[in-house]
Nucleic acid binder design. Structure first.
Lengths: 148, 148
DNA sequence: GAAACATTTCCCACTTTTCCCCACTTTTTA
DNA sequence: TAAAAAGTGGGGAAAAGTGGGAAATGTTTC
């Protein structure tokens, strides 16, 4: 269960130091084996390898002849990379993924349940504001009866 | 299982160096025997030979009287070529396929489960943007209940 | 039919990049 | 305040990328 947002810095080689509070969990859950991929909203996603696998398998079973499914497969499978935490608790974010996410130095790592989101800090701010401003209007039916 | 995107360069002879992380897998799965062919979206496809064979067989069993099936057969079977990895882990992309895919030098090799997609870099970028912008609207029914 | 030329294929060597490990600085906690 | 843990940076060995050249195969022309 991952939650909470942290402002972090990529170092000069593009490495991301995972906050210490997650490291033991990640070592136990997957021996530091993580999967990074690209999200439609312009951020990156980071899964423990065992969480990623069933999602990938479901995706690959869908028909590649449907254009929307094909697009989803292209992004999620196409950008997916195995990454391994090093002894200092860092993971290397590949050039391809850094480019996709517009990551330079200042980034936000945001816990989202079974995975993390990784944002360029400026993009994260923008997304926050966008989410606030469009929050009005109709609620989706799934939220009927939902109370905080 | 192939995943991940890599920016690669064709050399002056039209050879493509397969990223090292795939080489052992490909040698074990098919002794370096691959099949390249043309995809409808303007990229090339590359299968390990054992993955390609059942697809080809299924295609050939379909009725050639249906124009859409006929078109699919023409492209996939018509452009298919056997290629063999050399000792340096490279495959030669034939002039015909290079022309079809508009491949010059800078290309993207994208893992897609049982196969690879091979794109001209500029085309790949364009395709990515197109996929994002048309993602809105109705989801295909197969994706109901799909969660990341 | 043979020889010369062109083309392709295979192999070797060099350069570049990547990855892994170690050490230092900074921060936190007892 | 001291010790331990976390954050940060750098260096070096090993592997991967790249290009060129030689040998073999095929083709064309005389």
């Amino acid at each position: 269960m991952f939650q909470g947002a942290a402002q972090l810095n990529l170092d000069s080689k593009g490495r991301l130091a995972i906050p210490a509070r997650y490291r033991d969990v990640l070592l136990n859950a997957c021996a530091g084996n993580l999967v990074m991929t690209a999200d439609a909203d312009g951020c990156l996603l980071m899964y423990p390898q065992p969480e990623w696998q069933p999602i990938r398998d479901k995706l690959l079973k869908l028909s590649a002849l449907n254009p929307k499914i094909r697009a989803l497969q292209r992004r999620l499978i196409g950008y997916a990379e195995d990454v391994l935490m090093d002894n200092a608790g860092r993971v290397l974010v590949s050039p391809a993924l850094r480019t996709y996410g517009g990551l330079d130095k200042r980034v936000m790592l945001v816990g989202q349940g079974n995975k993390f989101e990784l944002w360029d800090e400026a993009k994260w701010q923008a997304q926050q504001e966008a989410d606030l401003s469009f929050a009005g209007g109709e609620l989706p039916p799934e939220l009927e009866g939902f109370s905080l």
